[in-house]
């Protein structure tokens, strides 16, 4: 049985020793105690587990640890830099874009990836890109507003 002994997570090389068939989600959460990414469906249909792999959003629940080896993985815990939240995290707080908050880390990671590709997405593009992320509490309009707001902050203009 193949084993994985190292993962590059949030800029640090983490020593592990895990079955390569285990999901990236389980290894992040259970071995590295990075519990920001959540389990929601196990079939890549809810987005609660989204992390970035070499900058691309991936559902960690259907990504094997083996296929993540060698990639640069970023989780929601890795967004904060020197005590400074990512603008999208700030925007979620300012807009109040959450209720129970369980979907929030996955939403933020999917949103961060979107903003890297397009620093000024319109509402239709946000809806299209985040369509794979579920919020059962129905905070969708606020999440769209938060992404728009973060886009404004990233363009250097403060609030959108």
């Amino acid at each position: 049985m193949a084993r994985i002994t190292e993962l590059d997570v949030n800029g640090s090389r983490e020593k592990i020793d895990v079955d390569a068939e285990r999901t990236l989600l389980s290894v992040l959460r259970d071995d590295l105690d990075l519990t920001g990414a959540k389990y929601g469906c196990g079939e890549a249909r809810c987005g609660a587990c989204v992390v970035l792999m070499d900058g691309r959003p991936v559902p960690a629940c259907v990504t094997s640890a083996g296929s993540a080896a060698g990639a640069k993985i970023t989780t929601v815990e890795g967004l904060e830099q020197d005590g400074q939240l990512h603008p999208l995290q700030e925007a979620f707080l300012e807009v109040g874009a959450m209720q129970c908050g369980y979907c929030t880390p996955g939403m933020i990671m999917a949103g961060v990836a979107l903003l890297r590709d397009n620093p000024d997405p319109d509402e239709a593009e946000i809806v299209r890109t985040l369509e794979g992320n579920l919020c059962r509490c129905g905070a969708y309009p606020r999440i769209v507003a938060a992404v728009r707001r973060a886009a404004g902050m990233l363009r250097g203009g403060g609030a959108a």
Binding site: T35, E77, L85, F92, T104
Partner: peptide
């Protein structure tokens, strides 16, 4: 809110 957006809040499953 801050604990939620940073992934720091521990739900039961965490």
């Amino acid at each position: 809110g801050r604990a939620i957006v940073t992934g720091g809040h521990r739900y039961t499953s965490d």
